[in-house]
Write a protein that binds this DNA or RNA. Structure first.
Lengths: 89, 89
DNA sequence: GCTTTTATTAGATATTTAGCTAATTAAGCA
DNA sequence: TGCTTAATTAGCTAAATATCTAATAAAAGC
């Protein structure tokens, strides 16, 4: 839960997730959308990976990233639970 | 959106929200649940307030905090949208 | 009016974070 | 075998964050 919210805290990472929602993208394609160096993007991708929000596979020299939604269910559950406030016992 | 995820990033703040889900609590009651000084708790409460996740009202010397769920809907929407991944056009 | 209680504000500080440049790894290609 | 391209790792740094102590504010009770 902590890694997840940590990952979602940063606007760059949130935008990356939104991009990956549309289609899988290579690290380079993602980086092209930001005015930020490649290592910085790499850093964000690594963090998203640790949070299990994305997965990656290497094809030749390229590394393609995909959105992983499984973990998002957890956060959804957590938030939904708070929203059930009115219905507490 | 940024203030919201910023607020949710910290475990102490998430736990405060969970507590306030059960019932409204004063700053002191909240603080009692943590091994942390009152000013630190005050800091977290202020941050939650800025994110509009809680509201507060003063009654005598006490300040009571309540969970505010309106803003949570936004985050819910954002996450749900990512989960619609499979259905992208 | 003073003292106690509840809470916040101010100021200091160690840690974490997000960015950069430089160096490295690994694959493709001439 | 080199050179180029794609991406990551290493090392550095400024800014943000979470914590503390000390000081202040404001209400309650003697």
């Amino acid at each position: 839960m902590d890694l997840l919210f940590k990952a979602l805290r940063d606007p760059t990472r949130r935008r990356i997730l939104e991009m990956l929602k549309q289609r899988d993208l290579t690290a380079g394609q993602i980086g092209a959308a930001f005015s930020m160096t490649a290592p910085s993007i790499s850093y964000h991708l690594d963090l998203l990976k640790h949070a299990q929000l994305v997965s990656s596979r290497k094809k030749g020299q390229f590394v393609t990233y995909s959105l992983e939604t499984t973990v998002l269910d957890d956060s959804l559950g957590w938030i939904l639970d708070l929203l059930k406030k009115g219905k507490r016992k």
